[in-house]
Amino acid sequence: MKTDELIASMATNLRPVSPAAPAWRITGGLIAGAVVALAGIMAVAGPPFAYILATGISTFTVKLAYTIAMTLLAAVLLLGVGRPGRRQGWRYAWLLLPPLVIGAAAAMEFAGAPADARLGMVFASTWQTCLASISLMSLPIFVGLLWAFRRLAPTQLHLAGGLAGLCAGAAASVVYALYCPETAATFLISWYTLGMAVAATAGATVGARLLRW
């Protein structure tokens, strides 16, 4: 086909697009994926919030704050990656802030604890459940984000995949926080962060293939 004809055919029946659409798409993919993840964990583990009274509201709030902060930061950076034309450079440093805050709290907690209780704080009894749940639940969210990228134009595919994975992992840990029976900040910084890192690594690995356009 001639280029002129191609252009004419693309300009007819033109559908208007909003500049805000990419942000809505990512939000939509994120929420849809999280709903699927929540439905999945409800099918396995019953209704959420079972441990809130046991762990206390403040612990629960810290978990939510950490995971939601990571989700939002990753989502904003992800949006930037999908809209080429500007390097984000130092903005990625924001991702370090929440782990640093929680890490500092965990370090104080760890230092204040008696030596024989420390290992118990790190591993507690549910670290395997935590890691497995976050990794598994990040899958539907990752799919939702991939869908959101269908109209975006990522030019660095590994980076985009990694950020999508991180965002999915962080959102999955928001869902998991509704179920988590642990109280220690040490646990939070170890296993939640590792769960997100697993999802991010997986995302970066498959991203280059799945996001190509």
């Binding site: 697009v17 909003s18 500049p19 990419p22 809209r83 034309g85 500007r86 975006l152 134009a153 030019t155």
Partner: peptide, 22 residues
């Protein structure tokens, strides 16, 4: 198809160039 991904706050040439380079 991906015209949504253009951010009106940024220079158009930079966007076009990034896509062409990709």
């Amino acid at each position: 198809q991906r015209r949504e991904s253009y951010n009106p706050g940024l220079p158009f040439t930079a966007w076009l160039h990034a896509i062409a380079h990709y």
